[in-house]
Nucleic acid binder design. Structure first.
Length: 105
DNA sequence: TAGCTGACGCAAA
DNA sequence: ATTTGCGCCAGCT
């Protein structure tokens, strides 16, 4: 199991309506300080969520710990729309703290 | 093998 | 509250 495989595995488990930070993904993937590397992987994402296959990766649900939108291959405005469509609360370009996914719950 | 890059994070200013 | 600088790590020339 490579780092990238673990990352994609974690991201694919994020429930709709919730988000997770790059940092947390890196942590769950077993490499605590690889937040930046996670971003690289999302950009290279081989399975965009809209394919809706069971292997799709909802990369739009991965955001910065700062609560801002962060980047997105299809444009940040698109990323915001997608998140809102799934029920994520975004006010003035900031994601509500309660929208962050917690692995327990 | 050796740099270079970036959808990040954090601390200092 | 913002902006800037620097460290980070895996992937890609």
């Amino acid at each position: 199991m490579t780092f990238s495989e673990r990352v994609y595995s974690v991201v694919s488990k994020i429930p709709a309506g919730k988000v997770i930070s790059y940092k947390t993904v890196a942590l769950l993937a077993g490499s605590p300080g690889a937040a930046r590397a996670v971003g690289t992987l999302m950009k290279k994402n081989p399975n965009p969520f809209y394919k809706k296959s069971k292997h799709s990766i909802p990369c739009h649900r991965v955001v910065p710990v700062s609560g801002k939108i962060g980047g997105y291959a299809g444009g940040t405005s698109m990323k915001t729309k997608l998140l809102r469509r799934e029920g994520v609360e975004i006010h003035d370009g900031k994601i509500a703290i309660n929208s962050f996914w917690k692995k327990h719950n």
